[in-house]
């Protein structure tokens, strides 16, 4: 599979009255064409901010992308001028946000909101855009789509709104769909439907998907690879099976342990990871997970481990369980 997106050393911070919050600290990962990448972590781990940073959707100020590269088909998204990045948003990369109740403009008809990206990027006429909006609503499985184009968001249920969001994100057939916890705000049964819908659309349209979640369980049947984030950094990444079978970071272990298991086994599982994520206002020299880690050794408190290979496609940043090879990223940057 050809590489579609290369992110290197992405670093984003926010200037708040309390000080500088280091939200994303040197994140590097790749995305191949047609691949589904899961990004998992607690809230505040920087997964959303790193994705928003890619398309420069964080409010600046107070946010600031300090450094890094995000090569999309060879072009660095972080260095594009304002107009060029606007052309990327919606046309090359589609976004689906967490809360469908608040992510649609309450005062605009659904059909209009769906049409906007197509009018802008594909230069369709309003009539063409409307026809295509109808197709899209059908595609995402909205019943009676023809009658719903002129409805307002409040006339839709949460699950239906998320389908509208997905339709909107896909309207210009982007190469990448970034879904930011798209099911968190929905009922369990609706969640499954949305996951199934995205899987189905990916198969039919062939785009790459980045699926952000705090729930490793969702990724099992969905993602090819998983990136685990903690305190603004990637602490482990691996193909999904390998991550489940052989987790190499205590935090991943914790996330896996927090999963409810059908067979009731895994007696030693951690119901929750004790403690709270670190305060990102202060610079941390030690491993950010050390205060919550039951494996922590003296070295963990001295230096923060780098992300090192465990095997070919598997990296982990842990002195105790992690890899020992050459650092990921550095060798791959030209």
């Amino acid at each position: 599979m050809a590489r579609l997106l290369e992110v290197r050393d992405l670093t984003t911070c926010f200037h708040t009255p309390e000080g500088v919050v280091h939200a994303v600290n040197g994140v590097s990962f790749d995305l191949a064409e047609g691949e589904t990448l899961g990004i998992v972590g607690e809230s505040g781990s920087g997964k959303t901010v790193s994705m928003l940073s890619l398309l420069r959707l964080i409010p600046e100020p107070p946010g600031r992308i300090v450094r890094g590269q995000a090569l999309f088909q060879g072009k660095d998204l972080l260095k594009l001028d304002r107009e060029a990045i606007q052309k990327m948003r919606g046309s090359q990369v589609g976004f689906v946000f967490q809360d469908p109740m608040t992510s649609l403009n309450p005062l605009m008809r659904i059909g209009e909101q769906l049409s906007e990206p197509m009018l802008k990027h594909l230069r369709l006429t309003p009539r063409q855009a409307r026809n295509r909006s109808l197709e899209l609503l059908k595609l995402v499985g909205i019943p009676g789509a023809a009658h719903r184009l002129d409805d307002y968001p409040h006339q839709f249920s949460g699950g239906m709104r998320q389908r509208v969001m997905i339709a909107m994100a896909l309207s210009c057939e982007p190469k990448i769909l970034i879904a930011d916890e798209p099911t968190t705000a929905l009922d369990v049964t609706i969640q499954a439907q949305v996951v199934a819908l995205v899987k189905d659309l990916r198969r039919r349209l062939g785009m790459a998907v980045i699926w952000i979640t705090h729930d490793l369980g969702v990724l099992a049947g969905l993602a090819h690879r998983v990136v685990v984030m903690y305190a603004g950094s990637i602490v482990e990444q691996a193909p999904v099976r390998q991550l489940y079978k052989d987790p190499r970071h205590p935090y991943t272990l914790g996330l896996l342990g927090a999963l409810p298991r059908v067979d009731g086994q895994h007696a030693e599982r951690l119901a929750n990871i004790a403690g709270r994520p670190p305060d990102l206002l202060k610079p941390i020299i030690h491993c950010p997970f050390a205060p919550r880690c039951r494996f922590a050794i003296a070295r963990c408190w001295e230096t923060n481990p780098a992300l090192l290979p465990v095997s070919d496609a598997h990296q982990s940043a842990c002195w105790v369980l992690g890899g020992t090879g050459e650092p990921f990223g550095e060798t791959q940057v030209d």
Binding site: L52, R89, G90, F95, F97, N105, P117, K120
Partner: peptide, 27 residues
């Protein structure tokens, strides 16, 4: 301006002036 749907509008690639006039102002 800080509401989610404004971020959605930006994520669609709309220009700032358009987002402000078409999405932010009416709301």
């Amino acid at each position: 301006i800080n509401q989610d749907f404004v971020r959605t509008a930006y994520s669609k690639g709309l220009s700032e002036a358009f987002v402000l006039l078409r999405h932010v102002l009416p709301n």
